[in-house]
Amino acid sequence: MFASLKKNFISLSILFFLVSCTSYAQEKPVRLVEEKQKKRTIIYIQNDTDTDKSVFLKVNPTGYRRSAQRPIIKNIPAKSKIQMLILIPLTDVESQYSYNLIINEELETIDVKHGKNLKKKGSI
């Protein structure tokens, strides 16, 4: 009785392990694609889903001509590939970059009110 129970437990454990491994091995539906050319690296975001996605991309380059490290926020249409930025490497310098990619379901708009009637501290 214990032998058959032990076999069933081992079989279920192996099955659970295989199912969990295959779920982690699936490719991400929105991903960063790097295209290296002779004197530049072009970075794209590819959306393989059936819905539009909003992405936030922050690239930290070293050894590239791009000095502004501002984040890029764009809507990526369904089943499309959008160019995000072009990195041009400096000569005689090892170039590399790291990035943060955050994917959202939809772009959220932020309303900021700018007013000329704002008073300074200490004024009446």
Rank of each mutant, 00 (worst) to 15 (best):
E35R: 03
I42K: 13
E35T: 04
I42G: 10
V55Q: 00
D48E: 15
T49G: 06
T41G: 09
R40E: 08
Q37Y: 06
K28I: 02
V55F: 00
Y24H: 12
Y44D: 08
F16E: 02
S23W: 11
N47W: 00
I43F: 14
N47E: 10
S23K: 04
T22W: 05
D50C: 06
V30P: 06
V30L: 02
K38N: 11
I45D: 00
D50E: 13
E27T: 15
D52L: 11
F16D: 06
S54K: 00
N47K: 02
K53R: 08
I43T: 14
E27A: 15
D50P: 06
I43E: 05
I42H: 03
C21V: 15
L32F: 14
V30C: 09
D52F: 04
T49F: 01
S20W: 07
I45E: 05
Q46G: 04
E27W: 11
C21G: 11
R31I: 14
E35F: 07
A25L: 09
D48Q: 04
V55N: 00
Q37V: 05
Q26N: 12
P29E: 02
S23Y: 15
V33L: 09
I43A: 08
Q46P: 04
E34N: 13
D52K: 04
S54F: 00
S23V: 05
C21P: 01
N47M: 01
T49I: 01
